[in-house]
Amino acid sequence: MSEQPEPTVRPTRYVVSCLPETNDNAPHFSLNVEYRGRDLWAVVRHGSCLNSAGRWSYESIPSEREDEWLAEHRFELDTALKIAREAAPTLTVNGYTVADALRRSTDGAEV
């Protein structure tokens, strides 16, 4: 009988949000930092990626991504988390800001 290989565990996604996870609106006001291979990470939300200049662009299928696009949208983990933390307070949903969502949640109103 051969031994079973030891499984490996690695994180592949971080959720970044200014709203607490218990807030019903947190999923809408969150973005993700996701592993994309080769020790590089992307800041993503609704199928788009944040680039190094702070602009969102659609993330096409892998075979359509140019090297220039990848260079602007893939980061080391620390950089990706920094970019995500800077972007999180600026998210809006249907015209509501993060501040609106936080204020409404303390008032008991839904966004």
Rank of each mutant, 00 (worst) to 15 (best):
T22M: 05
L31E: 05
S17M: 09
P89R: 12
T106V: 11
T12D: 08
T92F: 03
R45I: 00
C49V: 07
P20D: 12
A80P: 05
A42I: 00
G54A: 11
P20W: 02
R74S: 08
R38V: 02
D67W: 05
A101S: 12
T106I: 08
S57N: 04
L31G: 08
E86D: 14
R10E: 09
K82S: 13
P11C: 07
P5Q: 05
D78Q: 15
N94M: 15
T79K: 11
G37M: 09
L40C: 06
T79Y: 04
L91K: 01
P11W: 05
V9G: 00
P89G: 10
V111R: 02
V44H: 00
D39T: 11
V43S: 02
W41S: 01
E66V: 08
S63Q: 10
L81S: 09
T22D: 12
D100C: 12
A101K: 05
R74I: 04
E68K: 12
D78A: 15
E86N: 12
V44Q: 03
S60C: 05
N23L: 11
L91G: 09
Y35Q: 11
V33Y: 10
F75Y: 12
R85Y: 10
K82R: 13
R10H: 04
V33Q: 14
L50N: 00
L70Q: 06
R74D: 03
H46R: 02
V15L: 07
L77W: 09
A109F: 09
T8A: 02
E66D: 12
N23Q: 14
S48Q: 09
C18K: 14
R65L: 13
F75C: 05
V43C: 04
L70W: 03
Y35E: 13
T106W: 02
E59L: 11
T106P: 00
A99Q: 14
P7K: 00
G54S: 04
I61E: 14
E68H: 10
G47V: 02
N32M: 10
R74E: 09
E6I: 08
L50P: 01
T106S: 07
F29A: 03
W69C: 01
Y96N: 15
E64M: 14
S48H: 02
T97G: 06
E86A: 14
L77S: 14
C18I: 07
E21K: 09
V33S: 13
H73C: 12
E76G: 10
S63E: 12
Y14G: 05
I83D: 02
P7N: 00
L70F: 01
G54D: 04
A99P: 01
N51S: 04
V44K: 03
R36T: 06
F29M: 05
E3S: 11
P7I: 00
L50I: 01
E6M: 01
P5K: 02
A71M: 07
E64Q: 12
I61W: 06
A88D: 11
E34C: 06
P20H: 08
R65N: 03
T22H: 13
P62W: 07
R10M: 06
S105K: 04
T97M: 09
L81K: 13
T106L: 02
